[in-house]
């Protein structure tokens, strides 16, 4: 996988596909393109923005701590106009939650730009941003010899879990965080290969 790489995004309004770039996200770009811009949403109440679980995330701070750590990857999808439409941060030196002697990519953070969230704005700009980023993590897992296995800790709401389950993830267990039970989900190597085949990456 070399960067920048071309990806396709669907314009939500017209369902037309447009080209965008998958890029390595730098601290500078994260601060300017995500932290300073994503939550400027004209017409959306402040209260509603605060309800989004990633509203407090500061991508720039997350990345700057990892500057010299080569076991992490932080990728973003950037349009030709230069806007960042989603980002993902994952680790490559982690183990499967099902079989902890096997490697798996661990997704720490994944988010689509708020202006692409149908739950937040009347007309999202693009569709499929999160899925494209998730698929890149699966590809990287496969390339690194983990068979496409991907593990993550999800928010415990039915629509989030359904999103992952529809792509072959299974709930492995629940971890307790304060009063919250957070599902740990994993994509098995079999499910990952099936997805990569369906997408045309594997025969």
């Amino acid at each position: 996988m070399t960067f920048p790489a071309k990806v396709q995004l669907m314009v939500a309004d017209t369902e037309e596909c447009v080209e965008a770039l998958l890029v390595e996200l730098t601290t500078r770009e994260a601060k300017a393109g995500i932290d300073s811009r994503w939550w400027v949403l004209p017409g959306v109440e402040k209260r509603r923005k605060f309800q989004e679980k990633d509203h407090h995330w500061r991508w720039g701070d997350r990345i700057v701590r990892l500057t010299n750590d080569k076991w992490h990857r932080c990728l973003a999808i950037k349009t030709t106009a230069g806007t960042i439409e989603g980002a993902i941060l994952y680790w490559l030196n982690t183990l499967s939650a099902v079989n902890p002697v096997r490697g798996a990519v661990y997704i720490k953070s994944l988010a689509t730009a708020p202006h692409n969230r149908a739950s937040l704005v009347d007309m999202p700009h693009f569709r499929g941003v999160g899925q494209t980023l998730l698929l890149k993590a699966v590809l990287d897992s496969y390339r690194n010899g983990f068979g496409g296995r991907v593990t993550l800790e999800s928010f415990n709401d039915s629509s989030t879990i359904a999103f992952y389950e529809n792509r072959g993830f299974e709930i492995v267990r629940y971890d307790v965080d304060g009063e919250e039970r957070l599902p740990i989900l994993e994509l098995s190597s079999e499910a990952a290969e099936g997805w990569l085949q369906a997408e045309g990456f594997l025969e």
Partner: peptide, 26 residues
């Protein structure tokens, strides 16, 4: 057009037990 769900992961780092202990710092 409105039904697309925007996925997210919680944002916490993996537990120490999930990190491979045999790998060096690169």
């Amino acid at each position: 057009k409105k039904s697309e769900f925007a996925p997210a992961a919680v944002g916490r780092p993996p537990k120490c037990s999930q990190i491979r202990a045999d790998l060096g710092d690169l």
